[in-house]
Amino acid sequence: MTAKFSLGYFLPAILTIVLAWVFWSYLGEIKDGKSIQDLPSALIDKPAPTFKLPGISAGDKGFDSADLKGRVALVNVWASWCPPCRVEHPLLMQMAREGIPIFGINYKDKPDAAMRFLTELGNPYQAIGADRSGRVAIDWGVYGYPETYVIDAKGHIRYRHVGPIMPHDLAEKIRPLIKALGK
């Protein structure tokens, strides 16, 4: 009658331990730099969207999907009103100097503000498309600014980075990927 042992009674404790283990590993991932707000792109390994955008100022060469064919390239979604875009800008400049092709989508920006941004900080882009309505950004699945996409030679999206690119993102993710895709 007194001390009986029954496995069923251990079920709640076991469930708790399993759940705690899940939390533990999840917290570990977060501590290692995972952001729970990061959303994987729905377009990974899919062709980049088809679009055609005009340039920032009248008469500028725009940017369209055809530009992305035939080589590994970066597509960067930015705006002059976006403070983190300024943060990552020097890294974009550096990559451009190294000869990595970078294309820009200027998101919901005023032409003169965008031009001032580029005169002030430099222009790393081979071509820029002005997405005034934000529709092309929706086709890309853009939700945060800045966003940077790595496109392979076939014009497929291979990687998306949300938020400003920091030196370690460049060293650990973007550069190795560009290198691997370039082979």
Binding site: G33, S35, Q37, D38, C82, P83, P84, V87, G144, Y145, V162, G163, P164, M166, H168, D169
Partner: peptide
């Protein structure tokens, strides 16, 4: 630092 920055991006939005 990266987390803080990213937080800032999203917070700003």
């Amino acid at each position: 630092k990266r987390l803080v920055l990213l937080g800032f991006v999203i917070a700003a939005v």
